[in-house]
Amino acid sequence: MVTLKQLPVEELWGPGHNACAGCGSSIAVKMILKALRGPTVVVSPTGCVEVVSSSYPQTAWGVPWVHVLFENAAAVASGIEAAYKYMVKKGITNEKPDVIVIAGDGGTFDIGLQALSGALERWHDFLYICYDNEAYMNTGIQRSSATPKGAWTTTSPAGKVIPGKPEWKKDLIGIAVAHGIPYAATATIAYWNDLITKVRKALEVEGPTVLHVLAPCPLGWRFDPSKTVEISRLAVQTRYFPLYEVENGVYKLSVKVSRPKPVEEFLRPQRRFRHLFTPENRHIIEEIQKNIDEGWERLLKRCGLKS
């Protein structure tokens, strides 16, 4: 745990970046960079954060930052990590920087999943952070495998026959943990202390670590930009996005939500779910609620807790 006053004043996420007003991903990046413990290299794949931060000759980055392509951030990070391992071994440098990937859900859940799996299996000492805004926001709100069931996107429109995305969201942390990695966790921007603490903890761990950070997107989720943090908070308070960590395979709940709000309170302020609030689609909200309840029970069991 840290206090805000203890965090560095220096901004490594420069103002003047081109993120939309109220961007949740931008908040996540800023918090991540406040959690650094020393020399760091950040790698990003193509995506919102990449595009808003690196329009030549303007960069928002105060740390060395590398972008190559969309699906290969974990591989590029592998190369940098291995290169520094070599340089330390050869005495070319004496300090191995922390290598952090900051990638969107498209670059993580979808197109970059293979490279991520490969890098985890090869046990590179790096931290992979997915800022999850639940769709391809940069290209104009197309569904990804991180988009939740029922959500409207431009490729899962709320049509007369198909009311939004029919499929469930993928379990990224489950996939990461299946690699046997030493540390994985979820976090979200409203819980800044939890997020920063987890970044620091992940950096301290030797070997590959993964953080899944929910980052609400006012543009794509269709809510007022001032509500970004509030939506993030509701995601936790409704148990839509439970905060937990997995340390050497052991699950631990980070935020206990003993009196959860109904998921409707998370869904209602977001116009991407507006079509669910009609009599014919109400059943989808019930399915989502059921899925959340069951998921929570499963999580509690994994954490060795009783409901």
């Binding site: 901004e11 490594l12 420069g14 103002p15 003047g16 970046h17 081109n18 931060s53 690196s54 030549y56 000759p57 303007q58 960069t59 928002a60 980055w61 105060g62 740390v63």
Partner: peptide, 19 residues
């Protein structure tokens, strides 16, 4: 008059961009 490989050699040049 551009830097080889599109490298931006200074940090946080986005400060020029008054959003």
């Amino acid at each position: 008059d551009v830097v080889m490989g599109a490298v931006i050699t200074k940090p946080r040049t986005s400060l020029e961009n008054k959003t």
